[in-house]
Nucleic acid binder design. Structure first.
Length: 968
RNA sequence: GCCGGGGUACCCGAGCCUGGUCAAGGGGGUGGGCUUAAGACCCACUGGCGUAGGCCAUCCUGGGUUCGAAUCCCAGCCCCGGCACCA
């Protein structure tokens, strides 16, 4: 794909820019309240301004815009606003990397994102980055033909004159209502950057989250060995404590006691606990061979050496449960095998160490660790397969294990229950604690290794609040959600959601109103901003100054509390303006539809619901959400690192806007992931060009005055398409809708012109409807066609076609089907015989067969299929002389007739059968030109019928007999 | 692990809820038409067999329900996505 010009948007389709300009000049997408006109407020999530918009954005946006255009044509006053998300830490990260001269980031900006070389130095300012991309992307959005009311545009963060006012109001009100609380939580943390390290900020360790371990304190002398474990219930099976003899340990002052952990663990704990001091460093060798006392059981255990103990994992101290932990079992075996290694250890004691079985698991012996180690043939603690062995035992024991009789008050409990109970007891008696650690190595983008930090004084949105959840769930059950599968997903997310840390220390954003050392986190500042669109034009136009947007003003506009006269006096905003703002908010709200990628279901979209439910009256809660898939390119996930990221601009430059829009829409609907393929885009381009060519051809060809069944066929097919497309759009099935509007209509058109060389006015009517049906998907091409067809104004504002059921003509439709079927049959005969036809004879059935059809249509065809005897008897009453042929005939007819679509009325089928001969006769010249030889149409029992091999007898109603005369 | 979505022909994909209209539609390929030629466009074919419109096979695998199953039920195999402080 060619590199796009960075300065302007260029499309190979010249009329696109023309129409974009005309729309802009006519301001047709600027939406203001119109009394008594139904409104439709649709929006898409604003995009983060850290790069050029790409096809992934374009997919969601195009769905949104097509729906907006559809609703506008249906007569709604449609508001489709736009804005930009600047909140977040990523842009700041880019700036930092640039400041450090990171060559990768320079390459990315210059080569992937096409930032002009001279501007790159200015990217050290995060605000500049956002400003730059906003300007670039606005051009792209405009070029895409999105029908946006730009008067309402804004961006986020306190760099913006009024957005932060809105966020302050929102958070003060949320806090008053008790939806914000203070607490602490563990995060993956980079000690160098002094900030949380999210998945996107990591070089290594994507997906790794803080894991909660239990520290178990073993008393030794005046301090405790703090062993870390995921399985505190195994304390009953402890035989010894492991230390790594080659590792440095640290003695810590900790909660009025002293504990021993690895030196590395001490560094970690400092980020997690208050008042920790390192008293001194210790060599593990000093402790090897000594004894310590286990908590709860009070048993004396030896301290033994083990090199599998990793000082980087949890506390660097491990207690040994050889019966149930493969690592421990193998380490013990090794020690016992090679006593020389264990200098300073009482050999007798070592030999006497035996696994203690404390958990029974179905399918295993009393020592599951031993079973698994034997099965896998592991003999060294360096063996990597110990990981798998551990996983197996862990999982089996957790799900199916039961504590044995030797576990005190926990005996008989399932492992999963005992685990929490033992943990709680350890902590409450001061003989244990919680420590967080990472299950794998995480390296920050800055190159430093991360650890777990407990962030204190963190602010949370209390999404775990059961009452709040309940209200949200009730609303989810009532609102529109497309596709339907997404509804259950939303319900699950609400169930699963817990409190959300809504503040950050770094990056761009809006300060927390009551504590400016925090900023509101990026997902948390973007939940109810659609409300801001309803009044942002007042500020953008200067009617209301940003500083006039006080809490009282916002309370009045959004909640309806306060006296506008008083507020007007206090703020200087004219009272009528205040009232207009309030009215405008109430006019547009609630949001009728929000369209987004499905990745936002478990976060943004759910938060969006929570916050609306918390802040607004029920009648202002969102009415509908549409979730869609995420794009792939030629079957591969799109990403900058893969180098297959396609900016919208590049696609437009190659295929033009409408082809890009339609290719996206045609790629998928519902939550399926669309796949962008160059081949498809080229094909769509061809189709759109062909459409305009068809318009030109129709306009330049003379029209015939007299219309016939074929014209009724065309209109019938057309109105059915109108119905299908309208219904598809109403449930956001944009793929079906676009496909039918483009290819479905085209296929009907092809048959029509194939059948009729001279066009009639119906062709014009068909085109008129076709253009309207295409307008939401390919608006530029539609405008171009619309003006070619001699219309004034814009098809964008034209009326969406109505469904006229009275114009459905089943007779005409099936009549054409009969002709098509006849052609298929004749061709099949030709194909089999592989000879050239010289004449085709078609035989329609004789009258008595039609009578039988008529009798059968008085029965339920399904019944006749199952048991034809009644229908046969009934038919024999009328034609007793056909006793021999009747059973077969009835079966054949019912089989064939029931292959017609169910919705065709029986009356129509009968009428068709009666007129069958005429249908073929009328189409004789068409049939002859298709097959390339003369046709004769006979009736079965016609005297003069030419029927050398008796094919006329095969004639059934709606299925003629055929004899193809061929060259020998 | 938990939750969600899937497996359809050479490729992409519809159909499944509500069983019979059915294996849509598009791409690619093959043949033909149009054309000085190319492209565009139009037509046919594109699982197998067949010298008469037919027969057989097929919708991840294996069972079942039914007159009838891509569709409903059961079991299994495989793939993809989300899982939180990240936009």
């Amino acid at each position: 794909m060619s590199k796009p010009n960075n300065r302007s948007i260029e499309s190979p389709i010249t009329y696109e820019a023309k129409w974009a300009k005309l729309w802009r000049e006519a301001k047709i997408f600027e939406a203001d309240p119109v009394k008594d006109k139904p409104k439709f407020f649709i929006c898409v999530p604003y995009s983060y301004q850290n790069g050029p918009l790409h096809l992934g954005h374009a997919f969601t946006f195009t769905r949104g815009d097509s729906y907006a255009r559809f609703k506008r044509m249906q007569g709604f006053n449609v508001l489709f606003p736009w804005s930009w998300h600047w909140t977040g830490e990523a842009v700041a990260g880019t700036s930092e990397r640039l400041k450090r001269g990171d060559p990768a980031i320079i390459r990315l900006l210059r080569d992937i994102d096409n930032v002009p070389e001279d501007l790159i130095p200015r990217f050290t300012d995060p605000a500049f980055i956002c400003k730059y991309y906003t300007a670039e992307n606005r051009k792209v959005v405009d070029a895409m033909g999105f029908s946006v009311d730009w008067r309402r545009e804004f961006y986020t963060t306190d760099l913006h004159p009024y957005y932060s006012k809105f966020i302050h109001w929102q958070y003060l009100r949320l806090r008053e209502k008790g939806f914000v609380s203070k607490g602490e939580h563990p995060v993956v943390w980079c000690p160098v950057c002094q900030s949380a390290t999210g998945d996107h900020d990591r070089l290594v360790g994507e997906g790794i989250v803080p894991e909660e371990y239990t520290l178990v304190f073993f008393k030794y002398d005046e301090f405790y060995l703090a062993a870390g474990t995921l399985r505190p219930e195994t304390i009953f099976g402890a035989t010894n404590v492991w230390l790594n003899p080659d590792v440095e340990y640290a003695l810590l002052e900790y909660d009025n006691k002293r504990i021993l952990v690895s030196r590395r663990a001490a560094e970690k704990l400092i980020e997690q606990k208050h008042n920790i001091n390192v008293v001194k460093l210790l060599n593990a060798k000093e402790l090897i061979g000594k004894k310590c006392k286990a908590p709860i059981t009070g048993v004396e255990l030896p301290i033994l050496p083990a090199n599998f103990v990793d000082p980087n994992v949890v506390s660097g101290v491990v207690y040994s449960v050889p019966a149930h932990a493969p690592y421990d079992y193998v380490a013990l075996l090794e020690l016992q095998r090679d006593l020389s290694k264990s200098t300073g250890i009482d050999a007798k004691l070592l030999k006497e160490l035996k696994p203690i079985s404390i958990i029974s698991v179905p399918g295993y012996s009393e020592f599951p660790a031993l079973d698994v180690v034997k099965k896998m043939g592991i003999s060294s603690q360096e063996d990597a397969r110990l990981e798998d062995a551990t996983k197996e035992v862990y999982s089996k024991e957790f799900h199916e294990g039961v504590m044995k009789d030797n576990c005190g008050e926990y005996s008989g409990l399932p492992v999963r229950v005992a685990r929490d109970a033992v943990k709680a007891r350890l902590i409450s008696t001061g003989l244990g604690d919680i420590m967080y650690d990472l299950s794998g190595k995480v390296v920050c983008r800055c190159g430093n290794e991360c650890l777990v930090k407990i962030v204190k004084d963190q602010w949370f949105l209390t999404y775990s609040d059961p009452k709040w959840k309940e209200k949200v769930k009730t609303h989810i059950m009532k609102m529109g959600i497309f596709p339907e599968e997404a509804r259950q997903w939303f319900l699950n997310v609400v169930d699963w959601l817990h409190d959300w840390a809504c503040t950050r220390k770094t990056g761009l954003g809006t300060s927390l109103p009551w504590d400016s050392s925090w900023i509101v986190e990026t997902l948390s500042d973007s939940t109810i901003y659609p409300a801001l669109y309803t009044i942002s034009k007042y500020m953008n136009e200067g009617t209301v100054k940003p500083e006039q947007l006080t809490l009282e003003v916002l309370d009045y506009v959004f909640i309806g509390i306060g006296n506008p006269r008083v507020i007007s006096k206090e703020t200087g905003i004219p009272e009528t303006t205040l009232k207009n703002m309030r009215d405008e908010f109430l006019y547009w709200y609630p949001v009728d539809c929000r369209i987004s990628a499905k990745e936002l279901v478990p976060n943004h979209l759910t938060f969006y619901l929570f916050q609306h439910v918390a802040l607004f009256d029920e009648n202002l809660w969102p009415r509908c959400i549409g979730a869609n898939g995420m794009i792939t390119v030629e079957g591969e996930k799109m990403s900058k690192s893969k180098g297959n990221m396609i900016p919208i601009k590049a696609a437009l430059a190659k295929y033009g806007v409408d082809a890009t829009r339609c290719t996206l829409l045609l790629a998928a609907e519902d939550m399926d992931d669309p796949d962008w393929r160059d081949k498809n885009a080229q094909e769509t381009r061809r189709m759109l060009d062909l459409f305009l060519k068809i318009v030109d051809e129709v306009l330049s060809s003379g029209l015939e005055a007299s219309e016939n069944r074929l014209d009724r066929w065309l209109i019938s097919k057309m109105v059915k398409k109108v119905k299908n497309i309208t219904e598809a759009m109403e449930s956001l099935k944009t793929r079906t809708a676009c496909h039918e509007a483009l290819y479905g209509m085209y296929n009907d058109w092809k048959w029509y012109v194939r059948r009729r060389k001279k066009l009639t006015r119906s062709a014009l009517r068909f085109l008129d409807t076709w253009v309207r049906l295409l307008a939401p998907f390919a608006p530029f091409t539609a405008e171009e066609a619309w003006s070619k067809l001699g219309n004034n104004g814009f098809v964008s504002l034209a009326k969406w076609p109505d469904y006229h059921p009275e114009e459905v003509d089943e007779f005409a439709e099936v009549a054409e089907d009969l002709l098509a079927k006849l052609l298929v049959d004749v061709r099949e005969i030709m194909g089999v015989t592989e000879r050239k036809p010289i004449k085709v004879h078609v035989y329609t059935p004789s009258a008595w067969k039609l009578n039988v059809l008529s009798i059968m249509l008085s029965f339920d065809l399904k019944e006749v299929m199952r048991d034809p005897s009644t229908a046969i008897k009934e038919s024999l009453k009328m034609f007793p002389e056909k006793r021999k042929d009747m059973p077969i005939l009835v079966r054949k007819i019912v089989e064939y007739i029931s292959s017609f679509p169910m919705e065709i009325p029986k009356k129509v089928l009968l009428e068709l059968a009666l007129q069958e001969k005429k249908i073929y006769e009328d189409a004789k010249s068409f049939l002859e030109s298709e097959i390339g030889c003369p046709f004769n149409i006979w009736m079965e029992d016609e005297q003069k019928a030419y029927d050398p091999i008796g094919k006329s007898k095969q004639a059934l109603p709606l299925r003629p007999g055929i004899f193809v005369e061929m060259l020998p």
